[in-house]
């Protein structure tokens, strides 16, 4: 059983991220959406477990001026969001 976790809050909400990360299984994926995409900034990303599978919605990153500042490989399109939703058994939203 795998789970797709979405998180939509900016980095000042540390408790939310801690709860989320603490609830992940090895095969789960964390998808950052809306203000959650700021977690991709290097200094915040470095605080998350290295082995974690992290993705973020490109549109939300682009809207916020983040595309020049974050790693390209982590950004996914909407259709990939749909793929992830189907590939995992369930979705949990952290907000």
């Amino acid at each position: 059983m795998t789970t797709l976790h979405t998180l939509n809050q900016a980095p000042s909400n540390v408790n939310l991220m801690q709860s989320c990360v603490g609830s992940l299984q090895p095969d789960d994926t964390l998808l950052l959406i809306e203000d959650g995409v700021y977690w991709l900034l290097n200094t915040h990303r470095a605080k998350l477990p290295a082995a974690l599978k992290i993705k973020a919605l490109r549109l939300d990153a682009q809207a916020r001026g983040l595309t020049p500042l974050v790693s390209e490989v982590d950004l996914i399109e909407m259709d990939e969001f749909i793929n992830l939703s189907v590939l995992h058994n369930k979705i949990v939203s952290w907000f």
Partner: peptide
Amino acid sequence: LDDGVLQLLANQDPQVIQQKNLN
């Protein structure tokens, strides 16, 4: 303050999420 400084990041392009550009 806090996450508020992110309001001033350059290169914002919020048309893609149907919002007006704060920049």
